[in-house]
Simulated assay, not measured.
Amino acid sequence: MPLPPPIALIDRTEGLAPALDRPRPDRLEAGNPQRWTWLLHEAGPMSAGVWACEVGRWRIAFPPHKQEYFFVLEGHVRLHGAGGSVVDVQAGQGAVIPPSFEGAFEVVRPVRKHFVVVDAQPVP
């Protein structure tokens, strides 16, 4: 029987160049924040890493097969659900963006977070 893959240690971004981007202009609601993503692990349908962002707000829409768990290391984010719900997540707290979530992602104070995204896209 083959051995399982080794455990991946996800602890540092030092010396790694992040991917830089901004929200798409058609999704912006406030600001035009710069975003930094350090992708530290990818395996099958899962990716994990560190993400940082300036203050701003943009619309998001998760497909039914994608979800994200994140843990805020520093800063403050606010998730606005399409039905009017609001969830604040601050340093030391984690949250899950569930499949099919639609709403807005707001960075209230510059944020840095660990993230794990699972994209269980059905195989055709």
Rank of each mutant, 00 (worst) to 15 (best):
D11V: 08
P5N: 09
E42S: 15
A19H: 11
L73C: 11
V86T: 13
H76Q: 07
W58Y: 07
R35V: 10
V87C: 08
P63W: 07
E29P: 03
P98T: 05
R12Y: 06
V77Y: 03
F105R: 02
F70M: 08
S85Q: 11
H80R: 06
R59H: 06
W51H: 11
G56I: 01
P124R: 07
V87M: 10
P64T: 06
Q90T: 15
P63V: 13
I7P: 02
A52D: 09
G56D: 04
A30L: 09
L3P: 08
A30W: 04
V55F: 06
Y69I: 12
G92M: 11
A52I: 04
E54T: 00
V117M: 06
I7D: 01
Y69R: 10
C53N: 04
L16E: 07
H76E: 09
V111D: 03
G92W: 09
E14I: 07
R27Y: 05
S100G: 00
P122K: 05
A82F: 03
V77Q: 00
P2D: 13
R59T: 12
T13A: 10
P4L: 10
V55A: 14
W51T: 11
M46L: 15
A95N: 15
V87H: 12
V111K: 04
P122Y: 08
V118P: 00
P63F: 10
Q90W: 12
H41P: 03
V108L: 08
V77D: 02
A104R: 01
P6L: 10
I10V: 15
E14R: 14
Q67D: 09
M1C: 13
F71I: 00
K113S: 06
I97H: 00
P5H: 04
P18Y: 01
F105E: 01
A52N: 07
D11K: 10
P4R: 08
H65T: 10
R22E: 01
M1K: 15
A120D: 08
